[in-house]
Design a protein around this nucleic acid. Structure first.
Length: 307
DNA sequence: CGTGCAGTAGCTCAGAAAAC
DNA sequence: GTTTTCTGAGCTACTGCACG
């Protein structure tokens, strides 16, 4: 089973079920997958909120482990912050700097229980307006993939997604069913990767994908086809991806299409068709930066977008 | 992208009016 | 006197919008 997730972190469970969308594919043979309305996908067509609360999703993924899960939230923060003792003590961590990703996200999980509504107040120091120059910095992978700073909490906000996402990653890691790539260590047959639908589609030549869910879905399928992977997709799910929007008529937000692209990227990863992207670091080796900060995975094979 | 606000559609329930 | 129906007040859930 391969899973693509479009993530969001509203405080209330009810709103999470509109924003956290998972789309699942099952392997049906060599280089072929079926995406139908069974299993986790059933609720997509069951009417009413098609998604999951954070707690429901993590429980499901632990109960029925997947081979690969692609999530679209930032898995970590810049390594300069991980090495900063004040950054850690600001939210009550008393053992110096976080240093490693694992202690970082373990502590976030301690400070962010999955209640309804979520309580983000322990993280208020990380929103400090005066510290934005330090806190609103990008990881090497954000620079390379065109992503937002993980702790930005205005405009294109990622702040709450980074925190809630890491609380989930901590639980998935602790289940011993999953490794979280490209961080070293961990146990389990499943792999969890960070994906960014915008970056996946950009490698395939679609710039302003946000307003074109049909193009996004088509390119996701085409990217798999170019890698020799056959997808057998229930057309009702394609139709839903082109239609479902959690946004407004003026500012639509095609979460199912995003999740579908995340799924295609995760499938490509399962078939060795992805690579992590990073911007060069002036000081440190790429391998070290990748293991500290994580990385966004994009398709290796780039298909030029046919008009 | 998330938030708060304003506006609204839908629901429940209490109380009054009508029917028996 | 009892039951049913109507109706409006008040609540919740959801949508659209402006803003950071």
């Amino acid at each position: 089973m391969i899973v693509g997730v479009d993530f969001g972190a509203p405080q209330r469970t009810r709103d999470q079920r509109r924003k956290i969308i998972a789309v699942v594919a099952h392997s049906t043979g060599w280089h072929s997958y079926r995406i139908d309305a069974t299993g986790m996908n059933a609720r997509l067509l069951a009417g009413e909120p098609p998604g999951w609360s954070a707690k429901e999703l993590v429980d499901e993924l632990v109960a029925r482990p997947a081979r690969v899960v692609g999530f679209d939230f930032p898995f970590c923060v810049p390594h300069a912050l991980l090495r900063d003792p004040k950054f850690a003590s600001d939210i009550g961590y008393e053992h110096g700097a976080f240093l490693g990703w694992r202690s970082f996200n373990w502590w976030i999980a301690q400070r962010l229980p999955l209640t309804d509504p979520l309580d983000f107040t322990p993280f208020a120091p990380w929103r400090d307006r005066a510290e934005r120059a330090r806190l609103w910095t990008k990881r090497a992978t954000d620079i390379a993939a065109g992503g937002q700073p993980p702790l930005k909490d205005k405009f294109q906000a990622t702040f709450q997604m980074t925190l809630l996402g890491n609380a989930l990653l901590s639980k998935l890691w602790a289940s011993h069913q999953y490794r979280v790539l490209p961080f070293p260590g961990g146990r389990g047959a499943g792999e969890i990767i960070e994906v960014y639908p915008g970056a996946t589609l950009r490698t395939m030549g679609l710039a302003s994908y946000k307003s074109r869910p049909d193009e996004a879905v088509r390119l996701g399928i085409a990217a798999c086809a170019a890698a020799g992977i056959k997808l057998d997709v229930d057309l009702r799910l394609v139709a839903l991806a082109c239609r479902y929007s959690s946004g407004t008529t003026k500012k639509p937000d095609y979460d199912v299409a995003d999740a579908f692209v995340a799924l295609c990227t995760a499938i490509l990863h399962a078939e060795n068709g992805c690579r992590p992207v990073l911007a060069p670091d002036p000081t440190w080796q790429e391998r070290l930066v990748k293991e500290w900060e994580g990385a966004i995975w994009v398709p290796t094979i780039t298909t030029s977008a046919p008009a």
